[in-house]
Nucleic acid binder design. Structure first.
Lengths: 129, 129
DNA sequence: CAGAATCCAATTTGATACTG
DNA sequence: CAGTATCAAATTGGATTCTG
């Protein structure tokens, strides 16, 4: 069993920096808007900036660029530059990225099955035991 | 394979509400600060408000109360009220909560192993392929 | 094409004080 | 004990504009 440290997700600049838990860092990273969408989009073979932007209809350049940079920095995707005349860049998942993708698929089915349950029993507020 | 919808994590109030992906919702929920800490803390048997607050040294009442409410709302923990003279409330993981805890453990070891790798190869910036 | 820079609005966190 | 209420401070997301 992996040791699970305490604290930290948001508010990176504070004293929590010293006490970062890899799990929380990962969750915080992947919970950013569009993050999983970009990851899955690349996994499905959309490997260029403009293609991804089209696939994820409402994403802005700013955010897409940021997410790609973060995913690359975390070693989840890799980037290939081609010195073509209209500059070309291609993204693809690394092994790590694929591994994470599989883990997220599990989380996704967990989350989805729960949602179905929720719908049947009404929804929000408090659930009796 | 579970269908993975597009978009949404943060900024709940906007048009993304219509298009929520259970995975993103879950990630967004669990990435909130102290959320996993509270979950794991309860899993380890700390089942009272004051005990959890002591365990997680720097958490505020406000945040702890909020996290407990969210976890309960999501069906991950359950709450027992006892009508004792000093009011007593006990929390425990539901089956769902334990299932999620197991999934998070996997994510945790994924995240941790990566971090070790990162440390050896220096760290941040760009990783060559 | 593939981004980088800037500015502002919406969220979230945290500290403090208060209550059944 | 187990929270709730309020308010100030820090992040993040998104739109717009610009560039090699």
């Amino acid at each position: 069993m992996i040791e699970r440290k305490t604290s930290s997700t948001n508010y990176q600049n504070q004293s929590f920096l010293e006490n970062k838990c890899p799990l929380n860092e990962l969750l915080f990273l992947m919970s950013k808007r569009w993050m999983t969408d970009v990851l899955f989009c690349i996994e499905e073979g959309n490997n260029r900036f403009s293609v991804i932007r089209e696939e994820l209809e409402h994403i802005s350049d700013h955010i897409l660029a940021d997410r790609l940079k973060l995913l690359e920095k975390e070693g989840l995707i890799s980037k290939q530059h081609y010195d073509d005349v209209p500059p070309r860049v291609e993204y693809s998942l690394t092994e790590r990225g694929e591994e994470l993708s599989r883990l997220l698929d599990q989380l996704c089915s967990f989350a989805s099955s729960y949602k179905e349950q929720q719908c049947k029993t009404e929804d929000t507020t408090t659930l009796e035991v």
